[in-house]
């Protein structure tokens, strides 16, 4: 599995496709995060900083999905078949997802650098960082799976793929606002918790992570099932 993950990562970087999400997160950092979270007291500053971390996770979701699709689609269809023969079909599928997830974690770490440094310099301290990191580690999983569902292995048509990717992200956001939020990734849930402060986020985190894990398990199982006849 390690060899195929390295192959995916190497191909993705060498193809320069990695530049696309890098530009997107630099744009995100420059547009959305220019101001440090400064409140009248340390508690407010901390609350603003944690809210910012939640926003970053939400903004990263579509970028992560797009990136995952891009990582998986870097290799031609014929090469995907050769990789599956070399390491086994299931291992090959898992390797692609893992490579996409690792790229997304790298992008997430890069994106979080700006708000974290801003928070630290504004006196928010490091205390809010662990729940934010856990949140990002969790949110990157369903985002990666959304990208995988839009990949060429499942949707050969580029137009349909882009439509599914963008439409899927929007539908997930809309669903998470209403009574059918349990069907979606809990975007609004983590945004509310993060904007309520570090204690609220820490308290909500187990439930959010469980919800994300359940959603990811269903999405991942569906993806594996669909890929049975799509080498």
């Amino acid at each position: 599995m390690t060899a195929l993950v390295r192959f995916h990562l190497s191909g993705y970087v060498r193809s320069l496709r990695v530049v696309q999400p890098l530009l997107a997160i630099f744009l995100l950092a420059s547009v959305m995060l220019p101001n440090a979270p400064v409140g009248p007291d340390r508690a407010t500053t901390l609350k603003l900083a944690v809210g910012g971390y939640g926003d970053v996770a939400a903004f990263l979701f579509p970028i992560w999905a797009w990136t995952a699709r891009s990582v998986l689609d870097t290799e031609p269809d014929g090469q995907r078949e050769l990789g599956a023969l070399a390491v086994g079909r299931r291992t090959a599928m898992a390797s692609g997802l893992l490579a996409a997830y690792l790229v997304n974690l790298g992008l997430g770490a890069l994106t979080l650098t700006v708000p974290v440094l801003q928070g630290i310099s504004a006196g928010a301290g490091w205390g809010a960082l662990p729940p934010a990191v856990v949140l990002h580690l969790a949110v990157a999983v369903p985002a990666t799976l959304v990208g995988a569902w839009a990949g060429r292995a499942v949707l050969p048509s580029t137009a349909v793929s882009i439509l599914v990717l963008l439409g899927g992200c929007v539908v997930l956001l809309i669903l998470s606002m209403g009574p059918l939020a349990w069907l979606s990734v809990p975007m609004i849930g983590w945004l509310r918790a993060a904007h309520d402060g570090p204690d609220a986020l820490t308290a909500a985190l187990p439930g959010l992570v469980a919800h994300i894990a359940a959603w990811s398990a269903v999405a991942g199982a569906g993806y594996a099932w669909v890929r049975r006849f799509r080498p």
Partner: peptide, 20 residues
């Protein structure tokens, strides 16, 4: 039809395949 549209040298590609 070998999928040659990949960002590797021949040796780099075959090294990856050998490792797999």
């Amino acid at each position: 039809r070998f999928p040659a549209d990949q960002p590797f040298t021949v040796r780099g590609y075959l090294s990856h395949m050998a490792r797999m």
